[in-house]
Nucleic acid binder design. Structure first.
Lengths: 212, 212
DNA sequence: AAACAAATTAACTGTTTGGTTAATACAAAA
DNA sequence: TTTTGTATTAACCAAACAGTTAATTTGTTT
């Protein structure tokens, strides 16, 4: 499966100047953030004159905004897709955790990028409307309610459960440098730790909610 | 002339100004981040001349560094204290979740601040050594191993369990603006959601690992 | 009160930054 | 080939910025 978020929308990056800029800007913004990024660095990364950034995107803010919006939407679109899989709840949780963790792992800068930028400017989230987002979460919450009423899982606030599942996936990715320090992981050890989480998180969640 | 004793003639004013700067800088850095913060804004916040920032802290980087280090150490010192409570494992988990969530709630900018800055400069973590940190986690991991061998909880990698517990606490705080948007929380609804987590997370974890 | 040292400020400096501009290269249409 | 509109560049600009300095205030010592 192609889990790289950027491959669809800008696959011909090499040929098109606008896309070269876009990808270069994405790379720089992801690591440095809006405030830490420099237009000159983006231009250098794209191998192009700095004036072209303004020619195509007018301002730093506009360039950042278009990247942030695409990343945000794409990231939650993928989440919505996984969450909408047509599976019984417990299998869906296994399916979701495995694929969501893999998605994050292959786009490891995205979660910290989004959280960091929203932390510095929470207003930005309001400028983005999500078509499918709300619908998909509602479906999942209904799944949970149904499973509760059928006696498949114990009673639990569906919102709490969703936040639990997503938090268990995202946190260890966002906190990677801290985990590596505190738990003495090298790159390989960390990778292995996350790999094991693909099964462990689902097991952890299902153990908690399943009624035998 | 007794230089030693009376060398700091304006000691009281010193400390006061220095602390005013420190707290003002903390406030600005927490919300804007290192790159987004402005020395002039910190000076204004402290109600003093900008030159004083350099008089007391030499540079923006030094000022930021001292704040980041103190916040980081303090935050993990608190975590270590909670994690070292002398309680049976399952009670310790309840105790930890309740108090850790309250701690984060009362310092709600800290987690996103730390994660964001480490994301932009992972090297910074290496400049901070934590005396108690490693020891406290080891104690908790030993607690877990013991509980497993005593048949109190099911077998689980202690590291996975620790990351689960901490992630379940921190994630909903760090992702607050996203949760409020996606789950339609207003300020009160969010507050209530977190308040319920103080019990729900412990229940969730214990349900998952406890052997009846 | 005089001398001294530390604290504080207004004004300044050199550099970096996002953004502009005017001139040019390029490619397709005429 | 000439024209025409777009793409691209080097050079430039004004604002913002971290950091400095020289002068002044403030408090302490003698």
């Amino acid at each position: 499966m192609d889990n790289n978020i950027h491959s669809k929308t800008h696959e011909k990056a090499d040929k098109d100047t606008e896309n070269r800029i876009f990808e270069a800007a994405r790379k720089v913004f992801h690591t440095k953030g809006l405030d830490g990024a420099r237009m000159q660095e983006i231009a250098d990364e794209a191998g192009i004159n700095k004036a072209m950034l303004h020619y195509y995107f007018r301002s730093k803010d506009k360039l950042f905004g278009s990247i942030f919006e695409e990343d945000f939407k794409e990231f939650f679109k993928r989440l919505a897709e996984l969450i909408s899989a047509d599976l019984p709840l417990l299998e869906k949780i296994e399916f979701f955790v495995e694929n969501y963790l893999e998605l994050i792992l292959q786009n490891s800068y995205i979660p910290a990028f989004i959280l960091s930028e929203i932390h510095h400017n929470p207003e930005r989230i309001k400028n983005i409307f999500l078509e499918k987002g709300i619908k998909a979460e509602q479906i999942f919450m209904d799944d949970i309610k149904t499973a509760i009423s059928l006696g498949i899982i114990r009673p639990i606030d569906p919102k709490q459960l969703i936040v639990n599942i997503i938090g268990l996936c995202i946190f260890p990715i966002v906190a990677k440098p801290i985990l590596c320090t505190m738990l003495s992981f090298d790159e390989k050890g960390y990778r292995n730790f996350i790999e094991e989480r693909k099964k462990e998180v689902a097991r952890f969640v299902i153990n908690s909610i399943k009624i035998n």
